[in-house]
Computed example of a mutant assay.
Amino acid sequence: MRDNLDKRRLLKVWAKRKKEIDRQLIKENITNDEQFKPYINQLFMEIGPLWFQAFRFDHPSQEYNHWNLKCWIEENENDCRKKGDSKKALIWVQMYNYFITLLEMELIPRDPYEPINIAHS
Results as ranks from 00 to 15, higher is better:
2 R>K: 14
2 R>E: 09
3 D>Y: 06
3 D>I: 13
3 D>E: 14
3 D>F: 07
4 N>F: 07
5 L>H: 10
8 R>E: 14
11 L>P: 03
15 A>P: 04
18 K>V: 03
18 K>Y: 02
19 K>Q: 10
22 D>F: 00
22 D>M: 00
23 R>W: 02
24 Q>C: 15
24 Q>A: 12
26 I>L: 09
27 K>E: 08
31 T>G: 12
31 T>A: 10
32 N>R: 06
32 N>Q: 06
32 N>V: 06
34 E>A: 08
38 P>K: 04
39 Y>I: 00
40 I>R: 00
41 N>D: 08
42 Q>K: 08
46 E>D: 04
47 I>G: 00
48 G>S: 02
49 P>D: 07
53 Q>T: 13
53 Q>L: 14
56 R>M: 14
57 F>D: 03
58 D>C: 08
58 D>P: 05
58 D>F: 07
59 H>N: 06
60 P>W: 08
60 P>M: 03
60 P>T: 09
61 S>E: 09
61 S>Q: 12
62 Q>R: 08
62 Q>P: 01
64 Y>A: 00
65 N>R: 07
66 H>F: 00
70 K>R: 13
70 K>I: 02
75 E>D: 13
76 N>D: 15
76 N>F: 07
77 E>H: 13
78 N>F: 12
80 C>P: 02
83 K>P: 09
83 K>V: 15
84 G>L: 01
85 D>P: 08
86 S>G: 12
88 K>V: 14
88 K>T: 15
89 A>D: 14
90 L>S: 15
95 M>Q: 04
95 M>G: 00
97 N>P: 04
97 N>M: 10
98 Y>I: 00
103 L>K: 07
104 E>S: 10
105 M>N: 04
111 D>I: 11
112 P>I: 03
115 P>N: 07
115 P>I: 08
115 P>A: 10
119 A>T: 13
119 A>F: 08
120 H>S: 13
121 S>N: 07
